[in-house]
Design a protein around this nucleic acid. Sequence first.
DNA 1: CTGAAAGCGCTTACAG
DNA 2: CTGAAAGCGCTTACAG
Lengths: 366, 366
Amino acid sequence: MTPPEPRRRVTLADIARACGVSPATVSLVLGGSAAVAAATRRRVEAEIVRQGYVYNRGAANLRRKISTSVALVVNDLSNPFVAEFAAGVDEALTAVGCVMLLGSSGESVERQRAVLASLVEHGPAGVILTPAEGTGVDDLRPAVGLHTPLLLFNREVQDGPWDYLGADNVAGARMATEHLLAQGHTRIAFFGGHRESSSCRQRLQGYTEALEAAGIEPEPRWIVECAPTRMQAATATAALFARDPAPTAAVTYNDGVAFGLMMGLRARNIAPGRDFAITGFDDTPEACAQVPALTTLATGPRVLGRQAVEMVLARGRETDAPRRSTIAPVHLVERDSSLTYAQTPPTTTRRRTRTPPSPSGRSDRG
Amino acid sequence: MTPPEPRRRVTLADIARACGVSPATVSLVLGGSAAVAAATRRRVEAEIVRQGYVYNRGAANLRRKISTSVALVVNDLSNPFVAEFAAGVDEALTAVGCVMLLGSSGESVERQRAVLASLVEHGPAGVILTPAEGTGVDDLRPAVGLHTPLLLFNREVQDGPWDYLGADNVAGARMATEHLLAQGHTRIAFFGGHRESSSCRQRLQGYTEALEAAGIEPEPRWIVECAPTRMQAATATAALFARDPAPTAAVTYNDGVAFGLMMGLRARNIAPGRDFAITGFDDTPEACAQVPALTTLATGPRVLGRQAVEMVLARGRETDAPRRSTIAPVHLVERDSSLTYAQTPPTTTRRRTRTPPSPSGRSDRG
DNA sequence: CTGAAAGCGCTTACAG
DNA sequence: CTGAAAGCGCTTACAG
């Protein structure tokens, strides 16, 4: 009953020595091989717990030339959409016995390059990346090397040879715009985001398509860009009302921007959902908690996370397969923020996914 | 100009062979040793980029018996407080050239055990853990082994020998309660969270202390537990109004619970901040975006993340040092949710950290 | 200034 | 059913 050595990490060889067997045998026990005598197995297993042995998977992986990790590099972890996505990645990774290496670029291409280089040295089986704004091919190719599969999530990179997974931004923004049109709006803005990001360009495209299909010419002054944060959006609200006529509704780049816009509207004494209709994008948990609750597009980030893992591991198995680009469907979640009661009644029947939430409604104010 | 081999990963030995030097020399170049002739260095460096060599840090770490990773295991990544903390951990890790292994327990002790065991096998220099609710010593000791430093964040574990870092929950809840008392409230509830979590117990303690210091006996019916999620809190709101007299204010377990309570109140036609005062905990980004904005306690999760990295790495250097328990200060951020205009004017002067945000105030309703 | 050799902790045919 | 040996990709005294 000698207590195990304090400092030095106990190795497989220590266990072997203590049991009077070879390291090979201990390794077989660890691997659950049936070719080990039951008695031997028991002795080894007992010794393993007695000494508090912990397997060195790094050494094993080196020998076996395999990897049991996947790297995830995000632009901003405090974006709830991204956090949900990361949770989905984690779920899928755990299920296949892999571990996640996490890095964050903080939306800086420089940091992204450094983080990627550092993570790749740890030999992940693949890298999943939400590119920082303004990322180009040359920011990625050297950093990620020639042999590590890379999957881009949510933002495409011009001319990149990499797999891509993203939500159907075009269709989503189109649905949002059509929804507002159906409410009777004709002066609809597109609010927030930067055109450097592909997801913003795609959403803008869906917005434009829907307007044009309705015979409405998009008004450039009603397309206002801003950083996709709440505060920037609140500030940028002014641009919407700089000249008459002002829009009566806005398709926003994402939920965060929508919340900022709501703040900005209130500051001008305009009640969101009553005087001005808004749609978001992402369906963050906060969306349904806002008052009025935010009409938005659900993208299922958790499912996307699982899908990303599948895609990047598949790429590792078949390097020669053609580049894959997967566009995941989104769906509209109608809530109060887009129902502007001051508008002309819409021509189509108003469809509601939920009944008004509370007895204290806006009815006693209007 | 033969193109590099496609499949096989290029190794240091490949570079050495191509340059006609030994692996030792290449290793020295990589390490930036001054003992390499400038000409040799240049040749090697050129070959490294030509072949797209990527350093195998795992192999190097094995040989050098060091680790360049730290594991972070969180209970719930979609909690913004936790996400911010993770971002802080990431920042600090990048600064010291370490990489982050991320796992999530999803608040399940079982999964936590599995995740810890899996991560520890990858040999992190330390583990930072936000324990799942109900975690005991025996859930941690075997999983984490004898040699990996463990730092508990935000929730203590009974009788555990591990370092701890957390916000000053007792003082925070005391400040929140005193703030409500100063507004003239006497019927103050404590709302949300589970007593299994040490942070909840501590906040409850601060609440109790403040009440007793004011000569008020805590009313057990006004201490209502619920899972720390928005929806659970909305549902649990009923318990607050089950019997007369009902409380007029609540100190909540955290911001998420506070938002849920706001929803629950509105469903009962009670206006938060006007008919009922609320304080939160954490100062999540959402807190200032709510209407009314949430009075809450700022804990600085990002700074805590950096501090956690420092502590866990320090523990790795000095295994013999005594157990450290660090309590980080918090501060009250006063906003509208705790200013109930229906109350008797407070006896102390009302102090505001911010002026009312908008011209459209509640003044035109009151 | 450069190379040969040993070794980090594991695995895996191959013998016996 | 078990062991000896080689080797994964790197580093590091030690010679020269």
